[in-house]
Amino acid sequence: MAVFQRSRKWQWIDLISVLLFVCHLGYVVMNWHSLPTAIPIHFTISGDINNYGNKGFLALLPIVSLFLWIPFYLLEKRPHLMNLLNLTEENKARKYREGQWVMNIVKNGCLISFTFINMSLFFYAFEDKAPFGQVFFWSGMFFIGVVVIGPIIVFIQSLRLDFKQ
């Protein structure tokens, strides 16, 4: 079972993402007692609240985040387990790096976006901090865009390099 070295840059991105996640969890746990029992969990396109749920809903996104982050982390360390297109002995190292980069974008982008979206739900629970909630919500949406667009860019670049060879 081969484990490939990840770059320092990717390790720093992991560290920042995990620290952000842990700080968010700590903040929610410390303020759990002050949360109302019913919190807003769904909004219209204009930002109006149209559904409420139990405050336990705030535990859902962190759990989903971990269930996504951990397998992607393990897969990033073992890129030979990925199903990569047009893999040859000549381009194996490049393809593995590209696969690792995509895994890093997806795992950390999901972790950050879910953390920001969860933080927005937390702030929406306190009506006086709703503008703060919007900032976190749109930041989360930005990272979802990164998760979708980042791998597409890597894939297109990889195809271009494949056709040059």
Rank of each mutant, 00 (worst) to 15 (best):
F155Q: 05
R78T: 07
Y52G: 01
L35E: 09
R6K: 06
W10T: 07
G26N: 08
I112Q: 06
G56I: 07
I63M: 14
A130V: 01
G109T: 08
L85C: 06
I152T: 09
V147Q: 07
A59S: 13
G109E: 11
V106N: 05
F126T: 01
V147A: 11
I117H: 12
F72T: 11
D128C: 00
R97W: 04
N54D: 11
I153K: 13
I112N: 00
L66Y: 08
M141N: 12
A38C: 04
V28S: 07
Y73F: 13
H80K: 08
N31Y: 04
W138R: 09
V22T: 14
M1R: 00
G145P: 11
K55I: 02
K77E: 14
L66G: 14
V64L: 13
L25D: 05
N54A: 00
D128G: 06
I144D: 01
T44W: 02
L35I: 03
V18L: 14
N91P: 09
I49V: 15
L111H: 04
I16W: 10
L75R: 03
M1Q: 07
S113Y: 01
H80Y: 04
G140C: 05
R97A: 12
N51L: 08
S139Q: 07
S65I: 08
W12V: 15
N118D: 15
W69H: 01
P40G: 00
A93S: 15
S65L: 02
G145K: 13
Q5V: 05
W138Y: 15
F123G: 01
H80I: 10
S7D: 11
A130S: 13
H42R: 12
L75P: 05
Y52L: 13
M119A: 11
G140I: 02
V146W: 10
R97L: 14
N108Y: 02
P40A: 11
L75T: 04
L85A: 12
K9M: 10
K107N: 06
D128T: 05
M103V: 01
L66M: 15
A130N: 03
L85K: 15
E76P: 04
K129M: 12
I153F: 12
V148N: 03
I144M: 12
L15D: 06
L121G: 03
V22H: 05
Y27E: 09
G99N: 03
S158R: 13
I152G: 05
S46L: 11
V64F: 05
K95N: 15
E76A: 15
L87H: 01
I41W: 02
L19K: 09
N51R: 12
N86G: 07
L81C: 09
G53N: 07
I149H: 10
G53Q: 00
R160E: 04
S7K: 08
M119Q: 10
R94T: 14
I156H: 03
G109Y: 08
S46K: 14
